[in-house]
């Protein structure tokens, strides 16, 4: 089946997304250097997940005061996380299901199964959570937080990253 990208998008947003032109930048490509069943894999979500103990929520108050701004920071979610440790801060989504089963956005448990079955080489120890609503240029993601996470992934020996916008 061909996925309808606009099925669940509010109608008032649809035209803007549909009429947006293609990126003027060229394609990006980092080939897999090892087969997936030997690769270390990490996960990244923009669902606004954070750990209730020890991590601050994404800054919703500043966004309420400045609706054109979104918190560009990220939280590290360890693979050992349990459901009762997870909370979510995201003003653009109903976050209820993240608090029932975080795997709908950050499927750590499913990738542990794939690791146990030898379908991936190893699941990384650390995974990453952002909050997806950003100011138009995503400047902080481009210049600071994206490169920072890329370096952390390299330091952890990760060769493949599964990203999921929320």
């Amino acid at each position: 089946m061909a996925v309808d990208s606009y099925k669940y998008l509010p109608r008032s947003f649809r035209q803007g997304y549909e009429s947006a032109g293609a990126s003027v930048e060229g394609p990006v490509w980092a080939p897999m250097t090892t087969p997936v069943n030997e690769a270390t894999v990490a996960l990244l979500t923009s669902a606004g997940l954070y750990l209730k103990d020890g991590q601050a929520p994404f800054d919703a108050e500043r966004e309420r005061n400045n609706p054109l701004w979104g918190d560009p920071t990220y939280r590290v979610i360890p693979r050992t996380v349990s459901q009762d440790q997870i909370a979510a801060s995201h003003l653009h989504l109903n976050t209820r299901d993240f608090c029932i089963d975080f795997n709908v956005a950050l499927p750590i448990r499913r990738f542990e199964e794939l690791e146990a079955e030898g379908r991936i080489g190893r699941l990384a120890e650390e995974h990453y959570s952002f909050m997806g609503y950003q100011e138009r240029t995503c400047a902080e993601w481009r210049s600071r937080y994206g490169p920072e996470v890329a370096q952390r992934l390299k330091d952890a020996g990760v060769s493949a990253l599964v990203l999921a916008p929320a």
């Binding site: 990006v28 980092a30 890329a150 992934l153 390299k154 990760v158 493949a160 990253l161 990203l163």
Partner: peptide, 10 residues
């Protein structure tokens, strides 16, 4: 950004 750093993404 992450793909450009050399890590394969999906």
């Amino acid at each position: 950004v992450i793909e450009e750093s050399g890590i394969s993404t999906v």
